[in-house]
Amino acid sequence: MTEQSPAAMTELLNRMAAGDADAGARLLPVLYGELHALAGREMGGLAAKVTLQPTELIHEAWMRLVGGAPQSFENRSHFVGVAARAMRSVLVDHVRRRQAQKRGVDWLRIELDEVVDLFAERAPNLLALDEALERLSKMDAQLGRMVELRFFAGMSVEETAKILGVSEPTVVRGWRIARMWLRRELEV
């Protein structure tokens, strides 16, 4: 994966926002790298063999972003935050769809199913979590975003602090409180 300077990325984001599909395609790996820089480090042996490329999951998140109204992406952090929100909605939508319709298996479903299953180990009821998170965000927008970045986008404390522009201890404390509140709401 080629390294992208923040300036080059902002340029790509702006071009994408202006409807340049090629820019979007080139951004995709960058976005993926942002979201999973931490994952790559933690993968150890696996990471050496596998060059991560955008999955259909991220791709769909991307489509949601691009498909919406043009947004101005001031910087990577902002964008990653938006992507985390999109990932959340992709997953939650997928669970809803899975509940609504039983028949008709396609490849994207299989892949998303696996991802959802992975999340479900940590949050058995993704829909209830989504609703609780919605309530939390109303009371405390910062905690809401923190949960999105940490849980749905898999951001590290360090990344989350950077994206939210707060100190790492603030993230650690906030994250702990957010989980307390969510656990109580979900009774898990």
Partner: peptide, 12 residues
Amino acid sequence: STLEPPDAAGLA
């Protein structure tokens, strides 16, 4: 581990 981020390696 409830509400911990899913294992990144698993995703990978």
